[in-house]
Each structure stands twice: as structure tokens, then as C-alpha cells.
């Protein structure tokens, strides 16, 4: 059963367009993007329409989302002007991450795909390397002319290694068509970079060039050192965003794959529920942290 497990830490390439390796996670993200944009178009079209004297349900939903998020962001900023500016970022981060997380839980995602021959791929090379080590040792032992039994054993090992290499060359790996967008480090890195770059842009917008005082402060050595720490923390935030989201979602996928492989019936269900919850929490954590960092960027270092 365990032999059927397919776990790959990086997204699998489906096809290539020049330097862009179009992976299954890019395909999933693109589908999610198209679905989201289509949904928003429907929402926009429903606005102002009434059904039996009542607002259209999609308008109600959009108002519910916007009002709910507004309250959350307002709780962080405490300033309506800032809240209005940050709202689209919060909404976009939350919904994009949430739907990418949840899309990975749909039936067929990660399970429907094709078999790809791994000839010449790193899997086969690794297998060859693992087995070629004892062969080399045995060949060395041949040179010093040891006992015939050992030669025989060495020959046997060599044969086994050759067989293994032949088998590996014929082997193929399963490549799913779809993989959760957020289970690819490129997606989470892109989001983390966007969030951190926007934090710098917002900081400059609100504080002007004095924003950089936070990093380059030469009033005294302590402040200078604090500035260096701040600068490093800006980069570490990108890493923190990237690996938190990727780690949580990828770990969730692995958990589901393992549970489904061990006991396919009923047992994975609670874990699916858990992953739905984790999807929401991770989307919320990413969006709220972004807004917190945006808000911090708007406050001068002296005000801290």
C-alpha cells in the first residue's frame, strides 16, 4: 500500500513555455484565479438588483464579506482611513490563499494525473549512486585479491546493482495534474515578497524618506544596531511568510495522503475537516500579519 504513496515536496512540471516550467500548482492557481474573477464578475452584476424587494443574495454575501473584513482590519489599524487603504490587500490575501488552500482538498487534486518515465531523472541517478557505492568497495577488494567467496559476493552485488539500475530506468513516476497552489513554495514566496514589498511601499507613502530612518539610524551605536536588526527582520519576514504557509499546507497534504493510504475509508474524514480549518487559519494568519506589518510600516520609528 505504501508503495503507491506519491509525495513530492516540489511541484511537478506539466509543460514548459520557454524558461517557465508550468507546474501543476501554477495550473491550480490559474484555475482558482479564473474562478474567483468569474465569481466577482457575477457579484458585480448582481449589485443593485433586487429579488422580491430583497437584495440579491450575492450582494448580501459581498456586503457580509466586506463588512466582516472591515471590522477585522479596523481592529488592527484603529484608523478608518488606513483601514480603507488596507482592505483590498487583506481581502485579496485572504481569499486567494483560502481558495488555493481549499482547492487542494477537492477530490481529484493530487490524485488524477499521468505516469511519467523517470529515465535520466534525479530519482534514477540517486538510486544508481546508492547502489554503486558497495560495488566500488567490492571492486577495490578484488584488486587486493581477497578470498574467492568475497569475489563471488561482489559479483552478486554488482549484478543486483545492474538489475536495480535497469529497473529504475524503466520506472515511471506519477505526476498529478493539480496540486494546491499554496503547497508550492514559489506561490508562497511570491505572496510573501508581494506583502513585504507592499509594506515598504506603504511605509514610504506614509512617512516619506524618513521611513528609512528605521533601518539607517546613526544617532548612537545602539540605534544603529537596532536598524540592522530591523533590516534583517524585513528579509526574515519574507522567509517566515513563505515557509509558514507552505509548511502548513504541504504538511496537511502529506497527512491526508498518508492517512488515505493507510486506511482509505472514514479515517481521513476528520483530517479533511482539520485541513479545511487549517486552510482558513493560515489564510487569516497571513492576511492579518500582512496588515499588522503594513500598519507598523506607517508608524514612525520614534513613535514605537
Amino acid at each position: 500500500m505504501a508503495a503507491n504513496l506519491h509525495i513530492s515536496i516540489s511541484a511537478e512540471t506539466l509543460t514548459s513555455f520557454g524558461s517557465l516550467n508550468f507546474s501543476n500548482s501554477l495550473l491550480t492557481s490559474s484555475i482558482v484565479t479564473v474562478l474567483m474573477v468569474s465569481f466577482f464578475v457575477l457579484v458585480r452584476m448582481s449589485m443593485g438588483k433586487q429579488k422580491n424587494g430583497l437584495l440579491h443574495p450575492l450582494q448580501n454575501l459581498s456586503e457580509f464579506i466586506i463588512e466582516g473584513f472591515y471590522g477585522m482590519v479596523q481592529g488592527v489599524t484603529g484608523d478608518h482611513k488606513k483601514t480603507r487603504f488596507f482592505m483590498p490587500f487583506f481581502t485579496s490575501f485572504f481569499l486567494f490563499i483560502l481558495f488555493n488552500n481549499w482547492f487542494g482538498l477537492l477530490p481529484g487534486v493530487g490524485t488524477i494525473g499521468f505516469k511519467e518515465k523517470v529515465e535520466g531523472t534525479e530519482h534514477a541517478v540517486l538510486l544508481q549512486q546508492e547502489i554503486s557505492v558497495p560495488v566500488a568497495e567490492v571492486q577495490a577488494s578484488e584488486k587486493i585479491d581477497e578470498a574467492a567467496v568475497e569475489t563471488v559476493e561482489a559479483n552478486e552485488v554488482e549484478e543486483t546493482a545492474n538489475e536495480a539500475v535497469e529497473t529504475t530506468e524503466e520506472k515511471s513516476v506519477f505526476v498529478p495534474y493539480l496540486r494546491a497552489g499554496t503547497a508550492d513554495i514559489n506561490t508562497t514566496l511570491a505572496l510573501g515578497l508581494f506583502s513585504q514589498i507592499m509594506a515598504q511601499v506603504i511605509g514610504i507613502k506614509y512617512l516619506g524618506l524618513s521611513y528609512f530612518k528605521k533601518f539607517f539610524n546613526f544617532k548612537d551605536p545602539i540605534m544603529g544596531f537596532v536598524g540592522i536588526l530591523e533590516l534583517v527582520s524585513e528579509f526574515s519576514k519574507v522567509l517566515s511568510y513563505t515557509f509558514r504557509l507552505f509548511g502548513n499546507i504541504f504538511a496537511g497534504e502529506v497527512l491526508l495522503i498518508v492517512m488515505s493510504a493507510l486506511i482509505p475509508l472514514v479515517v481521513p474524514m476528520p483530517f479533511y475537516g482539520l485541513e479545511i480549518f487549517v486552510g482558513v487559519i493560515q489564510a487569516l494568519v497571513f492576511s492579518l500579519l500582512s496588515i499588522v506589518f503594513f500598519n507598523i510600516a506607517t508608524i514612525g520609528h520614534d513613535e514605537h
Binding site: 484565479t33 464578475v41 466586506i66 486567494f96 508550492d184 514559489n186 506561490t187
Partner: peptide
């Protein structure tokens, strides 16, 4: 890098749609 840029574009599209169609 190309995948990162592709995902940034994806997110940008969603961001634009959210700003102009929803928010």
C-alpha cells in the same frame, strides 16, 4: 523566478478583480 512572477501576476489579477469588482 518565472514561476514566482507567474504567481505574482495571478495574485495581481485577483487583487485587481477584488478592488474593482468587489471592494
Amino acid at each position: 523566478l518565472p514561476q514566482i512572477i507567474f504567481q505574482l501576476v495571478n495574485f495581481g489579477v485577483v487583487f485587481g478583480a477584488i478592488v474593482y469588482l468587489l471592494y
